[in-house]
Design a protein around this nucleic acid. Structure first.
Length: 578
RNA sequence: UGGGGUGUCGUCCAGCGGCAGGACACAUGACUCUGGAUCAUGGAACCGGGGUUCGAAUCCCUGCACCCCAGCCA
């Protein structure tokens, strides 16, 4: 390795804040080189260019973190530009949601909010210029004919019979297209490049089409709209973008962008492509996400099961956890499928340090402590967060009748079951040791109530004799508990990668019927009586929960963001499969 | 079959002619009033075949596999 390269790599390894190591990636390396050679006069100007035709998803988050992140890191700016060239698909609602999501992630475009539609006049002038140079022509072929003339992947295309119209005729026709003299689809403007090019994008691509549709920003001003390829590279040019970061599928559009830019002799940004994000157990295409919403498979774009940014927000993910995730998955050019577990790891890691602990019983089983005084109520002191002493402690009321988790009791436990069973002593977290003395069942044999005795010496969770109690379970006092709705989420899909399965199956066939379980009446400790939307908690031994906007005065609603790691649950699962 | 890309632990990412490393996941142990957290330990990979070289994941040749492109979508 050359000394220069070594030096750069070392730098790439140490650009993080406060000693944290940011892994190097090829785009960062390119920008570093450009800064070193002063290629762009010290500028780093990127852009995030969404089309406002849907909500942003976690794959967009990766792109946002990259483009905004690089700008931030090198003291540049990142533009937010809406690629709104197709009025039939775009809506203001989407513009608003996109701005909200980018902001929520913690990025700022400042005054650099742009719309491709702002450039329509300029773009029109560019197309006129191309016509005058003999590099664009009006074509009367129907969409079907254009397709036929285009050829195939292995055969060259044929030239359109309209390819050699005079410049004057093209000018006249294009002007009439603009003035609305033709119906949708009747004519298009095409670039005159090379119908025999092995790159299909170069076979006289359409650059303007007729669309008599109202645009969300320009209204009825236009009835011709520029195509993406033409618009996008020129928008980057107009905005003086230095590094235009996009996904792999645009790699073979780059020659076309080069052609437009060179033909018009305008500023030429550098495009760099990277692989888009794929996540296990979910889908990431806007088309599929739109279908999930439109067909009601989920409750909306922000359904906590959706891989949208708004979905993750409502699920309880934090901006930081998503940005951490984006850092950890890295940036490269190979197709990949990231394990959903990594995302879960990122949110657990953060919430473990920040979320206050509380006790909540999801599936209650009544326990009567026979030797506990009938009317006594004791306030037990509970630590709010063992990871952070500064978060203090709270009081949790304890009384004779409590509820514990149904799954924390087994009449005939397997070997390593440390929880409550007849004759086995267990610790009630922050309270007493109890021993089960009697099991009450209903007619069907289902356990409906337990009788226990407690050891008064064990108050707070320990005894003078120092005897070991292996299991600790959570509880709520029956008279003090509040009720809440709790929504438990699982993966959207039952398989990690539907495209890996049988080919003729549609992704909807892999929708997980158990992706949402609603618990109407969970019982929570009373400190949760006045929670506010947006608060996060750890329900001890369950997971992290987020207060949903559906919450009402008397009935909070909690979304489970992610479960705690559960080695016992894993063991049970494995034994089932063995 | 034309063009453009990509192949490194189970997964994601490093590596730039000199001991293949990190993260997640997994396994084992320690600790624990959350079967959480934490700590320690471990298993685990260079697509195949040739070549160049003292030495190849890295350079060359060759094969193979996978992804993208035939919208008047972006």
């Amino acid at each position: 390795m050359s000394d220069d390269k070594k030096e750069e790599n070392i730098k790439a390894n140490n650009t993080g804040e406060k000693g944290t190591t940011i892994p190097p990636h090829f785009i960062r390396y390119i920008i570093q080189q450009d800064m070193k050679t002063n290629k762009w006069a010290g500028r780093v100007e990127t852009r995030f260019p969404p089309e406002p035709n849907g909500y942003l998803h976690i794959g967009h988050a990766k792109a946002i973190c990259l483009s905004f992140g690089m700008a931030e890191e090198f003291g540049g700016v990142c533009h937010l530009r809406f690629d709104d060239t197709n009025p039939t698909k775009e809506e203001t609602e989407y513009v608003e949601s996109i701005k909200k999501d980018v902001k929520w992630l913690g990025f700022n475009w400042g005054k650099h909010e742009y719309y491709a539609s702002d450039y329509f006049d300029q773009l029109y002038a560019f197309s006129l210029q191309l016509i005058k140079m003999g590099k664009a022509y009006v074509c009367d072929l129907t969409p079907e004919q254009i397709r036929e003339y285009r050829g195939t992947l292995t055969e060259p295309g044929r030239e359109s019979p309209y390819r050699n119209r005079s410049m004057q005729e093209n000018l006249t026709l294009f002007n009439r297209m603009k003035r609305g003299h033709f119906k949708d689809g009747e004519k298009v403007l095409r670039a005159k490049i090379d119908m025999a090019s092995p790159n299909i994008n170069m076979r006289d691509p359409v650059i303007y089409r007729i669309l008599h549709a109202k645009h969300h920003r320009t209204g009825d001003k236009w009835c011709i709209y520029p195509m993406y390829d033409f618009t996008h590279c020129l928008s980057d040019s107009i905005e003086q973008i230095t590094h235009s970061l996009c996904t792999l599928e645009f790699e073979d559009h780059r020659p076309l962008y080069d052609w437009f830019l060179d033909a018009l002799g305008v500023y030429h940004p550098q495009q760099i492509e990277f692989a888009r994000l794929n996540l296990t157990y979910t889908v990431m295409s806007k088309r599929k996400l739109l279908q999930l919403v439109k067909e009601g498979h989920v409750r909306g774009w922000d359904d906590p099961r959706m891989p949208t940014i708004s979905g993750f927000r409502r699920r309880g993910y934090t901006p930081t956890s998503i940005r951490t995730f984006a850092d950890r998955i890295g940036v490269a050019k190979r197709d990949s499928m990231v394990d959903y577990g990594l995302l879960e790891h990122c949110i657990r890691e953060e919430l473990n340090k920040t979320a206050p602990r509380v006790m909540g019983v999801l599936r209650p089983l009544k326990v009567i402590i026979d030797n506990y005084p009938d009317d006594l109520v004791e306030e037990m002191e509970a630590v709010n967060n063992p990871e952070d002493e500064s978060m203090g402690a709270r009081k949790v009321p304890f009384s004779k009748v409590i509820y514990i988790e149904e799954t924390d009791f087994m009449e005939n436990p397997p070997k390593k079951f440390f929880r409550l069973s007849p004759g086995q002593e267990v610790r009630l977290r922050y309270a007493y040791y109890i021993t089960c003395t009697d099991v009450i069942k209903d007619a069907s044999g289902k356990v409906i109530e337990l009788h226990c005795t407690y050891d008064p010496e064990s108050k707070g969770g320990g005894t003078p004799d120092g005897r070991r109690v292996k299991g600790t379970i959570h509880w709520v006092s029956a008279v003090h508990a509040i009720r809440a709705e709790v929504r438990l989420y699982e993966h959207l899909l039952t398989v990690p990668d539907p495209s890996d399965e049988e080919e003729d199956k549609h992704f909807l066939e892999y929708l997980n019927p158990e992706s949402l379980e609603v618990i109407e009446n969970a019982l929570l400790e009373p400190s949760l009586a006045n929670v506010k939307e947006g608060q996060r908690f750890q329900f001890e031994r369950h997971g992290y929960f987020y207060v949903d906007p559906d919450s009402t005065e008397g009935k909070p609603v909690f979304n489970r963001t992610v479960t705690l790691r559960d080695t016992w649950g894993k063991m049970v699962q494995q034994n089932k499969h063995d």
